[in-house]
Design a protein around this nucleic acid. Structure first.
Length: 332
DNA sequence: CTTAGACGCCGCCAGA
DNA sequence: TCTCTGGCGGCGTCTA
C-alpha cells in the first residue's frame, strides 16, 4: 500500500464481529490505490481493536499492524456496522479513541449501525444523523439527544457523517471522495465500481427500485438520460411527463417510486453536478455556467450550488480546478 | 434581501 | 374489494 507523504489518512475501525460488506465498502472506495486518477491518494489503514486479530462476521481474520493509536492520528475515521452487542455496549477504549480523534480534528463517518458507536461516544449529541431504518426506533430511544432522520441515505454534518444501510455507505464514501477531490474524481471511481455515480444524502431510504436504477418496467432510464443531456434547456415536469406519455400526477408518483426523490429536486441535483464538472474543467465565468446548466442566472446557481455542496462556486473552483492536483481538504 | 407570480408537490378522492 | 390513475386544491418552493 503506498503511503505518500502528506496524503489524507483514512482509518477504518475494525472490531470483532464486524460485518464483511461494511468493511469492504470503505476498503473498495478508499483502500485501492487510485493514484492514477489523483495523487496523492488516501493513506488507508485498517485499525483493529482487541483481540489482536479480529474475526469478521463471516469468519475472515483481519491481520493488520495498525491499532487504535493509528486511528487517533487519522484525518478521517470510518466506523462500519459491527456486532450488535458491541454496538450497544462498546468498549471504553474505542469510544475514547473516537473522541480523541474527533477532538484532534478528524472527520468521523459511520456506516449503518456504526452510528451507535458515534452516539455512544457523544459525537452526535444535538447533531443531525441517520442509521439503518430498521434500527431507527431503537436508536432514537437510546440516544434521544441525536436529531435522527431515519429516512435519508446519509447526513453530512461537516466533521461528523452518518449513513444508512450498506449500500448507502457506498454513497457516503463517494460523497467523501467528492468533498476531498471533486466530482470528476468521484464519478470516475463510481464508473470503475459500475454503480450509479451519485445519490444525494437526502434521498429516501425507501426506494422501490434501489439498484440498479429503473429499467423497462418504469421506463424512466431513457428519460433521465435524455434530461441529463438537455439540462441547459428549461425543463418542466409537464414536459418530462409528456415525453413518457404519462399524466403529470402519475409521472410524479412513478418518479418518486423509482428514484426516491421528486422531478424538480432531481433536476436541481443534476444541474449542480454539471456545474461542478464545468467549474472543475473549464474557466468559463459563473454566469455562463449558469446558462449551460439551466439555472439561468448566476444568483440562482449560487443558491442551489451552496445548498448541495455547502460552498460557493468560486470556492469550489478554487479548490478543485486542475483535476489531478493535490487538494487541501481542510479548505472544504 | 424582498417580493410577486409561476411552478411543483402531495393528500385526497372519484372513477376505471 | 383492491389497486391504479389522474384531476383538484392548498401550500411550499423556485425564479426573475
Amino acid at each position: 500500500m503506498p503511503t505518500n507523504a502528506g496524503a489524507h489518512r483514512i482509518a477504518v475501525l475494525v472490531t470483532d464481529g464486524l460485518f464483511d460488506f461494511e468493511l469492504a465498502v470503505p476498503t473498495e472506495v478508499f483502500g485501492i490505490d487510485r493514484s492514477d486518477i489523483v495523487a496523492p491518494w488516501y493513506d488507508f489503514r485498517l485499525c483493529a481493536t482487541g483481540p489482536p486479530r479480529p474475526r469478521t462476521h463471516a469468519g475472515l481474520i483481519v491481520d493488520t499492524p495498525y491499532g487504535l493509536d493509528d486511528l487517533v492520528d487519522a484525518d478521517t475515521v470510518v466506523v462500519p456496522a459491527c456486532d450488535r452487542a458491541f454496538g450497544i455496549a462498546p468498549s471504553p477504549d474505542v469510544l475514547d479513541a473516537l473522541r480523541e480523534a474527533h477532538r484532534r480534528g478528524a472527520r468521523i463517518a459511520s456506516i449503518c449501525t456504526g452510528a451507535y458507536l458515534l452516539a455512544a461516544a457523544g459525537l452526535l449529541d444535538g447533531r443531525p444523523a441517520t442509521t439503518h431504518w430498521m434500527n431507527a426506533v431503537d436508536f432514537a430511544h437510546r440516544y434521544p439527544e441525536v436529531r435522527l432522520d431515519p429516512d435519508v441515505l446519509y447526513v453530512d454534518d461537516g466533521d461528523v457523517l452518518t449513513s444508512a444501510g450498506t449500500s448507502a455507505g457506498i454513497d457516503l464514501c463517494l460523497h467523501i471522495v467528492r468533498r476531498d477531490f471533486g466530482a470528476a474524481v468521484a464519478n470516475t471511481i463510481a464508473r470503475r465500481m459500475v454503480i450509479p455515480a451519485h445519490r444525494e444524502g437526502g434521498q429516501s431510504q425507501y426506494v422501490e427500485l434501489p439498484l440498479p436504477p429503473p429499467r423497462a418496467d418504469t421506463g424512466l432510464a431513457p428519460l433521465l438520460d435524455w434530461a441529463v443531456a438537455h439540462l441547459d434547456e428549461p425543463l418542466t415536469v409537464a414536459d418530462l411527463a409528456r415525453r413518457v406519455h404519462q399524466s403529470p400526477r402519475t409521472f410524479a408518483r412513478r418518479f418518486r417510486d423509482a428514484t426516491g426523490t421528486t422531478p424538480l429536486h432531481w433536476l436541481l441535483q443534476q444541474r449542480v453536478r454539471l456545474a461542478q464538472q464545468l467549474l472543475e474543467s473549464t474557466d468559463e465565468p459563473v454566469e455562463r455556467i449558469a446558462e449551460r446548466t439551466g439555472f439561468g442566472t448566476a444568483a440562482n446557481l449560487r443558491v442551489h450550488f451552496a445548498r448541495v455542496t455547502s460552498v460557493s462556486p468560486k470556492t469550489y473552483r478554487h479548490v478543485f480546478s486542475r483535476r489531478g492536483q493535490g487538494v487541501d481538504s481542510s479548505d472544504v
